[in-house]
Design a protein around this nucleic acid. Structure first.
Length: 628
RNA sequence: GGGCCCGUGGCCUAGCAUGGAUCAAGGCGUCGGCCUUCGGAGCCGGAGAACAGGGGUUCAAAUCCCCUCGGGCCCA
């Protein structure tokens, strides 16, 4: 609100001075210059051929502040900025009473209720989640939460590739290589399938090339829904899927609908779309050459002669060919062939639905969104672009409606790669489920939890083991999740065990700790019956001003983070806000303050902080604890 | 061979979209302070002289453009 007021007074002054309307920025200057700076004079200087400072002075001269303005004062400073200083008492009066509880921290309306689907996680149901999958899940879940807060009608989809090569690998292990169908005592089935069956089968391919042919047969049989193999596959994959979901929930995610690839393949989607694409000449049958007998798609922007095969000469569909109908379904370019069944109740109380071809009911919640966002790592960029290109030829506006949110992969640091016995080289090691190079998500969380538990027990000797375990679990999730969210999507996350086990600094636990400190103050205040509200708000100290200013930025930060689909922006804010609070905590005692108005103002600041941080953590999907 | 991404103090990162202020901001590590005071998973201070390199545009470039070099990914 301070920003919009500053903007409007400058615009009024421009009008008064008969300057042309220009776009300008308001940014946060170094603290000694003020609270907000406008660069409008620089922009104008170009056209007016005049000194920026002179222009800035003219503008400042014709600005008239109204009574009760949030702007305390403004000056023109070299080399030509207009610096605004906020009236902190007025800001406090307008802001603090409206953020005394988390319920008061209201959603903002960016989306206008538009229907959006977010697809994330989408792990092949042949193994347990590893640390790389968690980055996907953390990003997707945060995007969902931010969009929802911004008044989009958001549904979360999870695509289950239950008929691909990776599933065929473990089926091969069970059907032809005598791997027991039960995991050893005490081992989760998804871990067993990923750690043992999947890895070993892949090793065997090298020794025994016949196995590759066997896998091809399995894949072929999977295309027939009534085959024995299909039946067996369904048993195995759904068992793995249910265990994977446990991990996802543990990590704070939730979904609205599961989309099974096998059903997409068996549905009418592909046939309908295939005809349509053929009719429009988007896909062609190769009569000769290297790809003779294949159906291929030619995509603009690709190198000359570079095509993508959709249907192989043997009649099997490729990966892209399965993705295109799904993408088309998402944005409603084809009719919805699915019914929906209630798959499972989730820990947050909501129902997770699943597509079904034979039973269930019709629904319109998941299909045909105005916009769809798919969270997949950057290695899939080319495929995603091809899908988008193909859909663009069927409908206008696909460019904006189908969004691939790409992120870089998670790698292991050289130290961790060595410790785990994966590599001896001094360079990053990329994860590979197939080669057995990964850290299981559950194992990682358990390690973090163990570390947090030591600390928690030490600090809370009187608490029960159960309580300490529960809190440590939250700390572990917060630590790992924050680590995966805080940096740019384009940058590789270098995972280092020892570094991740740190609970200090720019971390999830730091944020949790700040929150807990605020809770303690409020708890004591309530026990002591201290009055926690006043009409005479007194903002006196620098640390109070800084905290207040951070609190006032919340809506702007959420808007920016949502607009650019950037959880990192919000994660950074959580740290900044916590730092401002910890600063305040050290320098402005609340309960020990003798002046009752100052004390009440500080309590309102603490409450405001707790509300805003609570909402910020909720949007990031970080667990919240009141004590730790 | 083609395309995409990354390169910021010893290490990890923010800032880059919309170029601007004699200190380019955090964290880790390091050195030194702060517990009779709302929880030290915290706070304060110091050292560390870095925007990969080179050109260009501009009054002004970490930010925009071009080239080169390193690293990664996708495709051929």
């Amino acid at each position: 609100m301070f920003k919009s007021e500053a903007k409007s007074v400058v615009e009024d002054a421009l009008k008064e001075l008969n300057y042309s309307k220009v776009d300008f920025n308001l940014s946060e200057p170094p603290e000694e210059h003020g609270d907000l700076a406008a660069n409008v004079a620089f922009t104008l200087a170009k056209n007016l051929r005049s000194q920026p400072l002179k222009i800035a002075e003219d503008i400042v001269g014709s600005i008239h502040l109204s009574r009760g303005s949030l702007i305390e004062s403004l000056t023109a400073d070299p080399p030509g900025y207009i610096n605004f200083r906020v009236n902190y008492s007025t800001l406090a009066e307008r802001l603090l009473p409206n953020i005394q509880s988390v319920e008061q921290v209201k959603p903002i309306d960016i989306g206008g209720g538009v229907k959006v689907t977010v697809e994330h996680t989408s792990v092949n149901p042949n193994k347990a989640l590893h640390i790389g999958h968690l980055r996907n899940l953390a990003i997707g879940d945060a995007i969902y939460r931010m969009l929802k807060h911004s008044n989009y009608n958001v549904k979360v989809l999870n695509y289950i590739d239950d008929s691909g090569a990776q599933v065929a690998d473990i089926l091969l292990g069970f059907l032809h290589l005598n791997f027991p169908i039960e995991a050893p005592e005490g081992v989760k089935f998804d871990h067993y399938c990923g750690d043992v069956v999947y890895v070993k089968v892949n090793e065997m391919y090298e020794q025994n090339p016949n196995l590759v042919e066997k896998r091809r047969q399995i894949l072929k049989e999977l295309e027939d829904p009534s085959s024995k193999v299909s039946d067996f596959a369904k048993k195995i994959t759904s068992r793995i899927l249910r265990e994977q979901l446990q991990t996802c929930w543990r990590f704070g995610a939730r979904y609205d609908c599961l989309n099974f690839e096998s059903q997409i393949v068996h549905s009418s989607l592909w046939d309908t779309l295939f005809k349509e694409l053929r009719g429009r000449g988007v896909i062609k049958f190769a009569e000769e050459g290297r790809l003779k007998g294949c159906w291929i798609v030619e995509v603009e922007g690709e190198e000359e002669g570079e095509e993508k095969v959709l249907v192989r000469a043997d009649g099997t569909a490729t990966y892209v060919a399965k993705d295109i109908p799904y993408a088309a379904w998402k944005i409603g370019l084809v009719e919805d062939p699915f019914n929906y069944i209630e798959y499972v109740k989730q820990p947050d109380g909501t129902t997770l639905w699943a597509t079904d071809l034979t039973k269930g009911s019709k629904k319109t919640d998941f299909y045909g969104a105005e916009k769809t966002i798919v969270v997949i790592d950057v290695r899939q960029s080319r495929l995603q672009r091809i899908i988008k290109e193909v859909l663009s030829q069927l409908s206008e506006g696909v460019e904006d409606r189908y969004v691939h949110l790409a992120y870089a992969v998670v790698s292991l640091s050289p130290q961790t790669a060595k410790e785990m016995g994966f590599s001896e080289e001094e360079r990053l090691l990329h994860l590979s489920g197939r080669k057995g190079i990964y850290l299981n998500a559950d194992d990682m969380l358990d390690a973090l939890k163990k570390k947090a538990l030591e600390e928690t027990v030490k600090r809370n000797p009187n608490e029960s083991v159960e309580w300490c375990e529960e809190v440590s679990e939250s700390i572990a999730v917060a630590a790992l999740k924050f680590d995966l969210l805080k940096q740019d999507l384009d940058k590789i996350v270098v995972f280092d065990l020892n570094r991740s086990l740190k609970l200090e600094g720019d971390t999830g636990p730091y944020i949790l700790y700040s929150y807990v400190r605020a809770c303690r103050i409020l708890e004591k205040a309530s026990e002591e019956g201290v009055d926690a509200s006043t009409k005479n708000l007194h903002i006196t100290q620098l640390s109070e001003k800084r905290l207040l200013k951070e609190l006032s930025k919340f809506d702007l930060v959420v808007e920016e983070a949502t607009r650019s689909l950037s959880p990192k922006t919000l994660a950074r804010y959580a740290i900044q806000l916590s730092t401002a609070f910890n600063n305040f905590y050290e320098s402005s005692p609340v309960l020990g303050c003798s002046d009752s108005d100052v004390r009440a103002t500080r309590l309102m600041l603490v409450k405001g902080f707790r509300s805003v941080l609570n909402k910020t953590m909720e949007l990031l999907g970080l667990p919240i604890v009141e004590r730790m």
